[in-house]
Design a protein around this nucleic acid. Structure first.
Length: 682
DNA sequence: GGTAACTGGGTTTTT
DNA sequence: CCCAGTTACC
C-alpha cells in the first residue's frame, strides 16, 4: 500500500509541501488531510534528492508516530537502507540518546561525595511517578507534612514545577495563575523546588523535563552545540502545535534561521496545554521566520463529508488559518447523537452497535470507543467482558505504575546508579518492618559519608529492625553480585530473582505480577544494556498490557478502547465517543477557565475526526452520582455544551430513554429466599 | 516512634 | 481502585 513512489497520488498542496526546497516550511494540516503521508513523502523526496538519511531528523511526540513514519519513509525511498539510517523519535527519546552520550559534560560536578559512586554515564531517568515521589520525600524532609493546613501533594507540586520549567514562566506566577489554592505556601514551595533540583543533580537523576533541558543546554553550549546541530541538514517536526518553550528553543538551536526546517501542525488539535504546550508557537512561527513558506492542507482523505460537516461545526477557531475540511467521499450516515439513560445503558448500547456492525462484516478492529478519561470505560469494559467481546485499551493503562514493575525498574537502576535515592527507597520498603521512616534512616546509614567508599551493607543490615535483617542481607548481597555481571540477560534475571521472595511476601497476587516481570526480563535481553532498556521503557511505556505479550496475532480481532489523547493520529471506520456530558467531556477540571474549555473543545474535535465512515456520540443523561429525585425520569439535566444547535443540525438524534424500556411488558421476577441455615447453629 | 491494618473519600489528559 | 488519615500494636 505504501510502496508507491513518493510523488504519486499527492494532490497539489501536498506536492507543494513535499517538493519544497530547503527554506523553512510550515504545513498547516487539518485532521485527515494526509499529514503523515506528506511528511513521509517529503523525507523520501529529500533522500531521493541526495540528502543523506543520517542527516535527517524526524521529531514526533509519540514513539508510535515515529516508528510508523520511519517505516513508511523507508518503504518509498529508493535507498533501501534509508529507514535504518534516519534519525527519528520522540523529543524525549532523542534527548535521552544525546544526553547520555554527553553525560560527562552534564554529569555531576567533579566535587562532593557523589562522584565516586556515580560512574560515568549512569544517569537514571525518573518517570512522572518517581519524580512525584521525590517531591513527596522532600516535602517530608522539609517538615511540610501533617501540619494543620494541608500542603499540596507531590504530584501537584510536580505539576506546578513542570509547568514552570516547560513554559519558562517563573514558578511564583505559575502558582498564582494555575494553582491559586497553593499560594499561601508559595515560599515553602519555591524552597522545595530548589531542593528538588539540587537533589536530582546530586544523585544523577533526570526527570522528563531534564532530558529536554539537557538537550537544550548542549545545543546552547558554544562548543558542543554547533557540532550537534550540524549533524543534521533537515529537521522535521510533527504536531508542532504541541511543542512547549523548551522544544521550541531546541528546534531554533537545531535550525537557526529555519533553513532545513519543516514543521507540521494544526492549531485546532492542540491538546497538551496541561503540560506546557502552546499552539501560539505554531502560529507565531510564520512571523519568526519571514522566509517561511506556509502550505495549508484542507482536503480530507479520511472521513465522509457528513462527518466533516459536523467536525467543521465543532472546530474551535483557534486563531490560526480558518481551515474548512472538505472530503472527496460523499454521503455516509450523519453522525449519531445517542441520548441514553445512564452510563450502564450507554455501555450496553455501544456494545449492541459494535456487535451489530460486526455481524454485517465490520471487523472489531475497525471500530473504536474513545473517551476523555481512562476510567470512563470502566462499565464498558465490564459489558464487553460479560459479552465476550475482545478488546484492547490504550492510554491510561499504567502498566509502568504497577508497583511490582516499579520495583523491578528501581532495582535495575540501582545496579548502575547506587546514588538513586528514590530507587533505594522503594527497594528498602519491600522488606518487612521497613516503612517510610526506617527506609529514610537506613538510607542515611547505607550511603557512605566519605567519597570513595563502598555502600555500607553490613552496617545497614545491623541498623535494620530484626524482622528485616535476614531478607535485607540477602537482597544487598544479591544486588552486589548482579552488579558484577555484564550480560544483560543475566543481570535482568538476577534482579528478578532477588525480588522474587520480596514480591511473594508482599503481594497476594504475586503469580501474575511475577509473570509480568518474566516478560520484562525476556524483552530486556535484546537491549545493549539493561540501563538502556529501562530508560527506553520509561520513555516509551507499552501502550497496552498486550504489547508485552509479544506481537499480537494478525488474525486476532478486538475493539479498540482509547483515551482521545492516545487516539491522536489514528483512525477507524467507526468511532464511538462516550460520556459526552459536561463534567466528563468536557472535564469538570477544565470548566472553570475559558482556555481549559477551549482545549476540551479541540479534544472533542480530535475525537470526531478519527472516524472514517461512522461517528456516534453518546450522552448519558443521568450521571452516576446524580441524586435520584422523585421525577428523576424527567430530570435529565446533564448535557454537553459541545452539542449546540448548529452542531445538532448536522446530526441524527437517537433517543434511548427508559420510556421505551418502561413500556416493555414486565417480565415476572421470581422471588428467591436466602437460606436461613438454622440447622448449622442447632 | 514507627509499622501494619483499616476506613473513608476522591479520581484528566502524557513524554 | 488508590491514597491519606486514623487507630491499634510492636
Amino acid at each position: 500500500m505504501f510502496d508507491l513512489r513518493w510523488d504519486e497520488d499527492l494532490d497539489e498542496a501536498q506536492l507543494a509541501a513535499v517538493t519544497h526546497g530547503d527554506g523553512p516550511l510550515i504545513v498547516v494540516a487539518g485532521a485527515g488531510t494526509g499529514k503523515t503521508r506528506t511528511l513521509v513523502s517529503r523525507v523520501a523526496a529529500l533522500v531521493d534528492r541526495g540528502v543523506d538519511p543520517e542527516r535527517i531528523l524526524l521529531l514526533t511526540f509519540t514513539r508510535r508516530a515515529a516508528d510508523e513514519m520511519i517505516a513508511r519513509a523507508g518503504a518509498i525511498c529508493t535507498r533501501r537502507d534509508a529507514a535504518r539510517r534516519l534519525w527519528g523519535g520522540t523529543f524525549h527519546a532523542i534527548a535521552y540518546r544525546l544526553v547520555t552520550a554527553h553525560a560527562e559534560s552534564l554529569g555531576p560536578a567533579p566535587t562532593g561525595a557523589g562522584q565516586a559512586l556515580a560512574p560515568q554515564g549512569s544517569l537514571s531517568v525518573l518517570d512522572q511517578g518517581d519524580a512525584a515521589d521525590l517531591m513527596d520525600l522532600l516535602r517530608h524532609e522539609h517538615g511540610l507534612t501533617g501540619g494543620t493546613q494541608r500542603f499540596p501533594r507531590g504530584d501537584t507540586l510536580l505539576d506546578a514545577y513542570s509547568r514552570a520549567v516547560n513554559t519558562g514562566q517563573p514558578a511564583r506566577e505559575v502558582i498564582a495563575a494555575q494553582f491559586p489554592w497553593c499560594e499561601p505556601h508559595v515560599e515553602a514551595i519555591l524552597d522545595l523546588f530548589r531542593a528538588y533540583v539540587g537533589r536530582k543533580r546530586a544523585q544523577s537523576l533526570l526527570d522528563f523535563d531534564d532530558l529536554l533541558l539537557g538537550w537544550r543546554a548542549l545545543l546552547a553550549d558554544s562548543v558542543v552545540g554547533p557540532a550537534m546541530a550540524q549533524r543534521w541538514d533537515h529537521v522535521l517536526v510533527d504536531e508542532y502545535q504541541d511543542v512547549n518553550r523548551i522544544q521550541v528553543d531546541i528546534v531554533n538551536l537545531l535550525r537557526p534561521g529555519g533553513e532545513g526546517l519543516t514543521v507540521v501542525g494544526d492549531d485546532a488539535q492542540a491538546v497538551y496545554g496541561f503540560r506546557g504546550a502552546d499552539s501560539r508557537h505554531l502560529l507565531g512561527l510564520a512571523e519568526t521566520l519571514p522566509d517561511a513558506r506556509t502550505v495549508c492542507l484542507e482536503r480530507n482523505f479520511r472521513s465522509r463529508q457528513r462527518i466533516l460537516s459536523f467536525a467543521n461545526e465543532i472546530r474551535p477557531s483557534a486563531g490560526g488559518p480558518e481551515l474548512r475540511l472538505r472530503s472527496d467521499r460523499d454521503g455516509g450516515p450523519r453522525p449519531r447523537l445517542v441520548r441514553c439513560h445512564d452510563a450502564t445503558a450507554e455501555a450496553r448500547l455501544v456494545v449492541d452497535t459494535i456487535l451489530e456492525a460486526h455481524e454485517q462484516g465490520r471487523p472489531l478492529r475497525s471500530q473504536a470507543v474513545l473517551m476523555r478519561a481512562a476510567h470512563h470505560s470502566d462499565l464498558l469494559e465490564i459489558e464487553l467482558t460479560a459479552r465476550r467481546v475482545p478488546f484492547v485499551k490504550y492510554g491510561g493503562l499504567k502498566f509502568l505504575e504497577a508497583a511490582h514493575v516499579k520495583d523491578f525498574i528501581a532495582t535495575v537502576r540501582l545496579l548502575d546508579n547506587p546514588l538513586d535515592e528514590i530507587a533505594w527507597y522503594r527497594l528498602l520498603r519491600l522488606h518487612d518492618g521497613v516503612g517510610p521512616a526506617r527506609a529514610r534512616a537506613l538510607l542515611d546509614v547505607l550511603r557512605p559519608h566519605e567519597p570513595d567508599t563502598e555502600l555500607r551493607h553490613s552496617e545497614t543490615v545491623a541498623a535494620a529492625p530484626a524482622a528485616a535483617r535476614t531478607a535485607l542481607a540477602t537482597t544487598l548481597d544479591a544486588l552486589a553480585s548482579a552488579r558484577q555481571q555484564q550480560a544483560v540477560a543475566t543481570r535482568a534475571e538476577l534482579v528478578l530473582e532477588l525480588l522474587r521472595p520480596r514480591l511473594v511476601a508482599r503481594y497476594p497476587d504475586h503469580a501474575a505480577r511475577l509473570g509480568d516481570l518474566d516478560r520484562l526480563v525476556g524483552a530486556a535481553a535484546q537491549s545493549p544494556t539493561l540501563a538502556d532498556y529501562v530508560a527506553t521503557l520509561t520513555l516509551d511505556p507499552p501502550a497496552s498490557t498486550s504489547d508485552l505479550a509479544g506481537p499480537p496475532h494478525l488474525d486476532e480481532d478486538f475493539v479498540v478502547l482509547s483515551t482521545v489523547h492516545s487516539a491522536k493520529g489514528l483512525e477507524w471506520d467507526s468511532v464511538h465517543v462516550i460520556n459526552v456530558v459536561d463534567g466528563a467531556f468536557p472535564s469538570d477540571m477544565a470548566l472553570t477557565s475559558s482556555a481549559g474549555l477551549l482545549e476540551e473543545r479541540r479534544l472533542f474535535y480530535v475525537a470526531a475526526t478519527r472516524a472514517r465512515d461512522e461517528l456516534s456520540v453518546y450522552t448519558p443523561l443521568r450521571l452516576p452520582h446524580h441524586r435520584r429525585g422523585r421525577d428523576d425520569k424527567h430530570s435529565y439535566a446533564p448535557q454537553s455544551r459541545f452539542l449546540d444547535r448548529a452542531a445538532l443540525a448536522t446530526m441524527d438524534v437517537h433517543e434511548n430513554l427508559p420510556g421505551a424500556i418502561a413500556n416493555r411488558p414486565a417480565t415476572p421476577v421470581p422471588r428467591v429466599e436466602l437460606p436461613a441455615l438454622d440447622d448449622l447453629w442447632a
